[in-house]
Nucleic acid binder design. Structure first.
Lengths: 244, 244
DNA sequence: AAGTGGTCTAGACCACCGC
DNA sequence: CGGTGGTCTAGACCACTTC
C-alpha cells in the first residue's frame, strides 16, 4: 500500500502523522497543563508502536508545545511559552516570521582579497578572493539593518551570484548546503556612515550579529555581519537549565 | 538497596556509558571528520541494542561532538565547533565558564509593589509584592554588568533570601525549580547613573538581557534584567537550519 | 550491490508519581 | 498500588551514499 494516488506523494513518517494529530488535539480541545492521552493510549489510538509515539512526542517537546513529567504524564505547555529555539534563518525568512515585509538595497558587490578577520574565521589563506556583498535591509520600507556577507569565490563565483533569489538556495545547489552557524551577538555604537544609512542619530546603539556558517560536514562557507537598529530589532530565545 | 556505600550511587544508563566510551575514543584516537564505528559495530562492541547505540549518538549530536550523514556514517565534528547551545545559567556559573572570577556588590534589596512590566511578565496582579534585588556584577574585580532581579514574595519571602548563596538553589528548595527561561537580547545606550556604576562613558552601548524564568510546569518564577558592558561581554550561540 | 543511518514493531522491565 | 514516562531488547524494512 503506497497510496500513490493523487498528488506526488513524498513519504510522510508515521511519527509526523501522530505529532500532527496531537498538535490538532491541542489546538482544538486542550488547554495549557491539560494531560495528553498516555503513550499507551496513543499507541492504540493511532495503531503504532510505543517508539513511534515517543518520537512524535519528542518532536512536540522540542517545539515547546508539551512537556513530560516522569511518572505523571505528558502535558500541554503554557500558551505564551512558544518555542523560540533560535534557528538559522535568512534575513528574508526572519522578517516574514516576524510579520514584516522585507526588502533590500545593494550597496556593494565586489570581488576582493579577504580581510584578515574573514580569512581567519573561514580558514582561508591570507589574501584569498572572496565576494563581498553589502546590503541595506529594510522591513516594511524602513531601514532595519546593514548586512555584510563574505563568500569565498571558490564556493560561488562572483559572476554567478543572483542577489534576487535566496543565497542559501544558490549555495545548496552549488553543493554547499548551510547547516549550522556560530553567532556572536554584541552591542556597538554606530559609525557616522552606518547611522546615516540606518537613519538614526550618530553614535546610537545597535545590535551586531557576526555569523560563521558551515555545512553539515563542517566546511566553512560564509562569514556575515549584520548590524541591526536597536529600536527595531531584538533577539529572542528560549533556554533550558541542566537538561536532565 | 540504596547503594549507600561510598558516594551516593545513581543508576548510570547504558546509553550514557556508550556515549562516554565514544567520547573517549574521540579524545584519544579520532580527528575531526573521521568516521565513528557504524551503529551495528557499536552494538557488537558494547553488547547493546541498536536503539541504545542511537540514543548514545543522539546525546553526542546534541553536544555538537559528532554529526550524522544518512547513508554514509557518523563523523567527528570540527574541533572549533564546540557545543554552544545556550543554556540557562546564573551569573556566577556564566563567569566561571568564561574563565573569570565573579563577585558582586548589592546595591539594593527591597520589597516593593511590582512595576507594571514585571507584573505583566510574571502574570501577577497589578501591585503584588515582589522582592527587588539590584547588584553590580564584577568579573576579575572589574564591573561587567548591572543586574535587577524581581521575585514574587509568594515564591520566596524577602526575609528568607540569602544573597550569599545560589538563588536558583534556594528557589529549588522552596519548590520552584527553574527549568527554562525566555530571554530577549537588545542593545541600549547607558543612562548616566548606569554608566557611572559600570565605569564607562555616559551613553556607551550596552547589551541588555531580559529574562523570564519558569518551572518545568510553566509557573512564572523570576523576572530579571542584566545590562552588560559592550566591551566586556558578548553573547555566543550555535544555531542549526531545518532541524530534522 | 553492499553498507550506512532512519524508521518501525512488539514486546519487556525499571523509576517515579499520586492515591 | 496502578498508571505514567524512561530505558532497553531483538528483530525488520526503507532511504540514502558509495563503489
Amino acid at each position: 500500500m503506497t497510496g500513490d494516488a493523487g498528488e506526488g506523494r513524498i513519504v510522510v513518517h508515521k511519527y509526523e502523522q501522530v505529532a500532527a494529530s496531537i498538535r490538532e488535539s491541542i489546538a482544538q480541545s486542550l488547554s495549557p497543563h491539560d494531560a495528553l492521552a498516555s503513550e499507551r493510549e496513543l499507541m492504540a489510538i493511532h495503531g503504532v508502536s510505543r517508539m513511534t509515539v515517543r518520537k512524535a512526542i519528542s518532536v512536540l517537546v522540542e517545539e515547546g508545545r508539551v512537556y513530560n513529567v516522569h511518572g505523571s504524564g505528558t502535558f500541554v505547555g503554557s500558551a505564551d511559552i512558544f518555542s523560540k529555539t533560535p534557528k538559522l534563518t535568512s534575513f528574508t525568512e526572519d522578517m516574514i516570521s516576524r510579520g514584516s515585509t522585507p526588502s533590500s538595497r545593494v550597496l556593494e558587490l565586489t570581488r576582493i582579497a579577504a580581510p584578515d578577520q574573514v580569512a581567519l574565521a573561514l580558514g582561508l589563506a591570507p589574501s584569498s578572493e572572496v565576494t563581498k556583498i553589502r546590503r541595506l535591509r529594510l522591513a516594511d520600507d524602513t531601514p532595519i539593518a546593514l548586512e555584510e556577507v563574505y563568500l569565498p569565490t571558490t564556493v560561488l563565483p562572483t559572476e554567478s551570484l543572483n542577489l534576487g533569489s535566496s543565497l542559501y538556495e544558490q549555495l545548496r545547489l552549488a553543493g554547499y548546503e548551510v547547516f549550522r552557524a556560530e553567532q556572536e551577538i554584541m552591542a556597538i555604537s554606530l559609525s557616522a556612515e552606518d547611522s546615516r544609512l540606518l537613519d538614526v542619530a550618530e553614535g546610537s546603539a545597535a545590535l551586531s550579529v557576526t555569523r560563521v556558517s558551515s555545512s553539515r560536514r563542517g566546511q566553512l562557507i560564509e562569514f556575515a555581519r549584520t548590524t541591526y537598529r536597536a529600536d527595531r530589532y531584538t533577539f529572542q530565545l528560549a533556554v533550558t537549565r541542566d537538561d536532565k
